[in-house]
Design a protein around this nucleic acid. Structure first.
Length: 432
RNA sequence: GUGAGCGUAGCUCAGCUGGUAGAGCGCCAGACUGUGGAUCUGGACGUCGCGGGUUCGAAUCCCGUCGCUCACCCCA
């Protein structure tokens, strides 16, 4: 896209600048998330972007792709190995343990918004610096937590206009029942391996669960016949999974049991889920999450079961834009409420004073630093999408009444100089 | 890490089988000396990503390189 000069510095591969007006959409989505989180009594936590490398090796899993080849890891000057966080759940649990939040008892419901880093090859919906909006409920293994959190997500997606997305739900069991399933799966794969696609033949050895996720058409019948985790769940896990499903049904939250849904992080237990949205390209999962009952202990803390999710904000933005386009809606680009057009040296002070007063009322104002021709002022006002233009020239100063022009209707009225702020403030309230 | 496609004006792009750059939009100015979004006229802006090669001559062909994009892998 952009050509580059030899001597010009540009953003690091896989990172990008978010510019207005797009940042307005990001802000809106984040504000809606904060509002919903507050409604469910989640509170914000801010953890460092930099963490000791060991944190992720122990939580995400030393053998996962994320840890093996996707982390930004470097040695600090004192030789400590540091890593730019590839995800935030590990950090939240680390903070939970470090600050002894478990001593307060009860449930801790936390959310975060911020950048994560993974050194992958960038493509649509996947960047090296990407943003996640996530939440974690720590301190209970009750299925009601899973259900409540999914209900919260359901509301959030509705607020974002993404009610058409699909919730995929599965259970990956626990350290007691999963090993047995993996043995059964490996045994079954041994028998059919040579009939699978090349990728799956490799996965069958390196990561058998991944075979279940294969999208190759020809493999589907074989995959369908493989053993399913659902048939291997221990009684406790089975009961938990059923409680989550019936809870969702009771609340009218649609979901699909996705027996083949597996997640790439080692810490997940029992409930795992993903929400996919069409037309996002190959990266169609806008959010994923699940339960991680053993994570706290893996990090040296006390037992503290948890449930959480992370939304890929970059993908969320893509999905929202896509949904808006499909519904013929469009984000309205909002300009300032008022543009002040002033002519002649005598208007300098009155114009500046009006601008200051309006701004002190939190009304957005644009004003030229130098006097310019009215025709040009109106051109600028129109270009920046100002709702009103206030005209201050010789005649207005003499009469003590400024012209207020509504830029959408073109109507113009004279308003007492002393009344302008009040009149515009009222109008701003009626404007969407 | 692997593969494919693409790098021409601020943006979107055209430029056939090599003859040394164009359109639309945008921007600036004027028609219209205090009334915008329309129209018309004029104007500014390009080391054709970079380096090398072939050739009388390269935006165009070849090689290399850098960058971007999409896909695989994996994941948000």
């Amino acid at each position: 896209m952009a050509s580059q000069r030899l001597d010009s510095i540009q953003a690091v591969k896989g990172t990008r600048d978010l510019l207005p007006p797009e940042t307005a959409l990001w802000q809106r989505l984040e504000e809606e998330a904060r509002r919903v989180f507050r409604a469910y009594n989640f509170h914000e936590i801010r953890t460092p972007i930099l963490e000791p490398t060991g944190l992720f090796a122990r939580s995400v899993g030393a053998d996962t792709d994320i840890v093996m080849k996707e982390m930004y890891t470097f040695r600090d000057r004192d030789d400590e190995s540091l890593t730019l966080r590839p995800e935030a759940t590990a950090s939240v649990v680390r903070a939970f343990i470090e600050h002894r939040l478990f001593n307060e008892g009860g449930l801790h419901k936390l959310y975060y918004i911020g950048p994560m880093f993974r050194r992958e090859r960038p493509q649509k919906g996947r960047y090296r610096q990407f943003y996640q909006i996530g939440a974690e409920a720590l301190g209970s293994d009750h299925p009601a937590i899973d259900v409540e959190t999914l209900e919260m997500l359901h509301l959030l997606l509705e607020r974002w206009g993404l009610e058409e997305s699909t919730l995929l739900l599965n259970s990956v069991g626990c350290p007691r029942c999963r090993p047995e399933y993996l043995r059964a799966l490996r045994r079954a794969l041994d028998g059919v391996r040579d009939k699978l696609c090349a990728d799956c033949q490799r996965r069958a050895v390196t990561n058998p669960l991944r075979v279940l996720d294969c999208k190759v058409e020809a493999d589907q019948p074989i995959i369908e016949a493989l053993p399913r985790m659902a048939d291997f769940l221990c009684p406790e896990c089975r009961q938990h999974f059923e409680a989550v499903q019936s809870g969702l049904r009771e609340r009218g939250i649609a979901f699909q049991h996705a027996p083949r849904l597996v997640r790439g992080l080692d810490y997940y237990t029992r409930t795992t889920f993903e929400i996919v949205s069409g037309a996002l390209g190959a990266q169609n999962a806008i959010l994923g999450g699940g339960r991680y009952d053993g994570l706290s202990e893996m990090l040296g803390g006390p037992p503290a079961p948890g449930f959480g999710f992370a939304i890929g904000e970059d993908r969320l933005v893509l999905a929202v834009k896509e949904a808006q386009a499909r519904q013929g809606r469009e984000e309205i680009e909002s300009g300032p409420l008022v543009y002040i057009a002033w002519m002649g040296e005598a208007a300098t002070d009155p114009a500046a004073k009006l601008a200051r007063e309006l701004r002190r009322q939190n009304l957005s104002v644009e004003i030229s630093p130098t006097p310019i021709k009215l025709k040009k002022s109106l051109g600028i006002a129109s270009k920046v999408k100002a709702r009103f233009t206030v005209i201050i020239g010789e005649g207005e100063l003499a009469g003590g009444r400024y012209q207020v022009k509504d830029m959408t209707t073109g109507q113009q009225t004279a308003v007492e100089a002393g009344q302008i702020v009040q009149v515009l403030r009222q109008n701003s309230a009626t404007v969407a």
